[in-house]
Amino acid sequence: MPTYEFRCHECAVTFDVQRPTSASSDPAICPDGHPNQSASPEFNASVASQRTLRMSG
């Protein structure tokens, strides 16, 4: 299952969520307890590349 990076709009913390591709853009709950509408997906190519390398190697 893919891992997606999210950023909370309230506290700016970045966190990872594993979920199916079909749910990739669904909101996520901040680990600090902020409401699920306060976090949105982020894409960071370098993080995605590192994850791909770790998974394949």
Rank of each mutant, 00 (worst) to 15 (best):
M1Y: 05
M1K: 09
P2Y: 10
P2S: 09
T3A: 12
T3M: 15
T3C: 14
Y4E: 01
Y4L: 02
Y4D: 00
E5K: 15
E5N: 11
F6L: 03
F6H: 07
R7Y: 08
R7T: 09
C8A: 00
C8R: 02
C8K: 07
H9K: 13
H9N: 14
E10A: 06
C11P: 03
A12T: 03
A12H: 14
V13E: 00
V13L: 09
V13N: 04
T14G: 08
T14I: 01
F15R: 10
D16T: 05
V17P: 06
Q18E: 06
Q18V: 11
Q18R: 15
R19V: 08
R19A: 10
P20E: 06
P20I: 00
P20T: 07
P20K: 11
T21L: 14
T21I: 15
T21D: 09
S22W: 13
S22E: 06
S22C: 10
A23S: 13
S24C: 11
S24D: 03
S25D: 08
D26N: 05
D26Y: 06
P27T: 00
P27A: 00
P27H: 01
P27C: 00
A28L: 03
A28N: 02
A28Y: 02
I29D: 02
I29P: 11
I29T: 08
I29H: 09
C30V: 01
C30H: 04
C30T: 01
P31W: 12
P31H: 08
P31T: 05
D32M: 07
D32R: 13
D32H: 15
G33W: 08
G33Y: 06
H34F: 07
H34M: 01
P35H: 10
P35G: 12
P35A: 15
N36F: 08
Q37S: 15
Q37Y: 14
Q37D: 10
S38Q: 10
S38D: 06
S38G: 03
S38M: 06
S38C: 08
A39W: 02
A39M: 03
S40T: 01
P41S: 03
P41D: 00
E42V: 07
F43G: 06
F43Q: 06
N44S: 10
A45H: 13
A45S: 14
A45W: 11
S46A: 12
S46C: 10
V47F: 04
V47R: 13
V47H: 09
V47N: 09
A48N: 09
A48L: 10
S49V: 04
S49A: 11
Q50G: 08
Q50S: 11
Q50D: 02
Q50L: 14
R51L: 07
T52W: 12
T52G: 02
L53N: 01
L53F: 03
R54I: 01
R54N: 04
R54D: 01
M55C: 10
M55A: 13
S56L: 03
S56M: 04
G57E: 08
